[in-house]
Design a protein around this nucleic acid. Structure first.
Lengths: 334, 334
DNA sequence: CTGAAAGCGCTTACAG
DNA sequence: CTGAAAGCGCTTACAG
């Protein structure tokens, strides 16, 4: 293993001079010496030891990306999460930082992982709402959450206007003549993204002459997709349209009702959420709420790195807009 | 920040004793002292410094997961890669190791990333075939490749029987009475997984009375899915069935021909590859070649860690079996 | 523009 | 069962 010391010996200078050149502070080193050192380093195949650097400089260049670890669940099986991870990974690397990915259980697990590696910043995906305050108090590095509705002071969050997404879906259904609607989603917690989407949907319906019966709000934590499809079939007054909390779930529901002989949008209209590539593939052609995942990723990284560079910057959150993309999964009702 | 030294001072022992207890070598420390130290460490909120540990012990507990970095392409946008990453991440964490994810350009980039962090092992996803030998020569740690067809000596690889997958697809088409077939896939390189699948398909057809015209082997690097769908429409002797190199592509093709008024399997039969959840969702119900991604992930980790524990173990590769899952995307021809 | 000294927080290797 | 010494490869902070 080639070290600074080896190069220094070869070049006939001190370790410090080599260190300066390797770190690009060559303004303080004569160009001639710097060139010589760079050549030697290259010839010898020098690779800096990040652990040593991290220990001495207290700067690791590591960004932690933290997912909520749920037993028997693959956080990266969800296309939204994995696409987002890929986008931020690229961005973080581009800035010369390294990414450690953690599936973390709880506050103390998170803190251990961040501190043990001296992470310079962290991005959180998934539900950490209850622990946000604790996580922030225990870790004095820039922390950016995504899609959180935590009320913690000073939280930095990048999210979208979930409530508006629901409202747009409702408005679209109403405009197409639908009055009796339903909602399906995985209500991981009250006040999270799913309940925001549902609330925006519900409020807009109520205000504009539509309605959604209590029994048509399906919580996927309590009922399976098959269960929903079955209940729709035996319903004496079934909704003519359902707003589903993600494209993935909407596609799943699409399949379940298809199997039972019902067609979209002839028998049931559907609106999804996310606007993932698969949702536009025929025969689905799903009308959905579009969110800009690339913008979300770039904003997340922007905020993170701005705060790494200027730790005193006041905390910042951003809420991205959403829009409805009309395709063919909502029928025209008379 | 609490260090070993702080705890040692509190406990009235030396750093070494604390170090031993913290590393679980308490067999060599009296149980009484060990207990006392553990209590103090917990009270003070001690978190070991991984950089210092890595530097002193030359053991980082870091596993590098390396993807091929392609401009304007999100390696995690592909459901296969992201699911696999999630699976190995879980497994690696379970073993007490940490994961750094790298999007790497080439040999020197890879070597830099592995060595700089003193990774104890690495898993490669994506195409590194040409550089496998170089990567292995330059990095004396256990390296496990996936889906590689590199001929490098001593390579450790976990893959599936791609050739057989193609053969199974061909046999199924033939059994259903199809004679004139086609293939679509992204031929990233000659001799890679896609050409193996194609070759197995082709060979089996030829030997059993089927055939595949040269112009019905579609390389997605040269033609778009829309292009394929168009060419099928204007074809005077179109294939009655197409074997597609992945479910994702098969679904895409399904959509394109659907838009043009053709139906699966009435007008065109389709067989995919992977058996991803979405492919079983109605109305797709795609007949496909199943591969066991969970087994692939667990075998990859098993081999990696066995070689981390016993560096002298001879290199090992595994090839997993595949099977055809019949659903509804292949018609019965008379 | 350059360098000698001290130290980051831990472990190895030895001694008792 | 326990500890003092040296060192991992780098940077900080100072001196010149």
């Amino acid at each position: 293993m080639v070290t600074l010391k080896d190069i220094a010996a070869q070049a006939g200078v001190s370790m410090m001079t080599v260190s300066r050149v390797m770190n690009g502070n060559s303004g303080k080193v004569s160009e001639k010496t710097a060139d010589k050192i760079r050549t030697i380093a290259k010839d010898m195949g020098y690779i800096p030891n990040s652990s040593a650097r991290s220990l001495a400089a207290r700067s690791s260049r590591i960004i932690a990306v933290v997912f909520r670890d749920v037993p028997d669940y693959n956080p990266l099986g969800d296309p939204y999460s994995s696409t987002f991870l890929g986008l931020i990974l690229k961005e973080i690397q581009k800035r010369g930082y390294y990414v450690m990915v953690h599936f973390a259980q709880d506050f103390s697990d998170i803190t251990f992982r961040l501190r043990s590696w001296n992470a310079e910043g962290a991005i959180f995906l998934g539900l950490f709402d209850e622990e946000v305050q604790q996580i922030q108090d225990g870790n004095q590095i820039p922390l950016v959450f995504t899609d959180s509705y935590s009320q913690a002071r000073q939280i930095m969050n990048v999210g979208i206007d979930d409530y508006k997404g629901g409202a747009l879906a409702a408005a679209h259904f109403l405009q197409k003549g639908h009055k009796n609607l339903g909602f399906a989603g995985y209500f991981t917690k009250l006040g999270g993204v799913v309940s925001q989407r549902c609330q925006g949907f519900f409020d807009t319906l109520e205000k504009n002459g539509g309605h959604m019966a209590r029994e048509h709000v399906f919580d996927l934590e309590k009922i399976t997709m098959d269960g929903i499809a079955d209940s729709l079939l035996s319903d004496s007054n079934p909704p003519s349209g359902i707003f589903v909390s993600s494209d993935a779930f909407a596609l799943d529901l699409y399949g379940k009702i298809f199997q039972r002989g019902l067609r979209v949008p002839e028998h049931l209209s559907l609106i999804g959420f996310d606007d993932f590539p698969i949702s536009s593939v025929a025969p689905f052609s799903l009308t959905t709420i579009h969110q800009d995942i690339e913008k979300k990723a770039s904003e997340t990284c922007r905020i993170l790195f701005e705060h790494i560079e200027k730790p005193d910057k006041p905390s910042e959150s951003v809420t991205l807009d959403v829009r409805l993309v009309e395709r063919d999964s909502v029928s025209e009702q008379k």
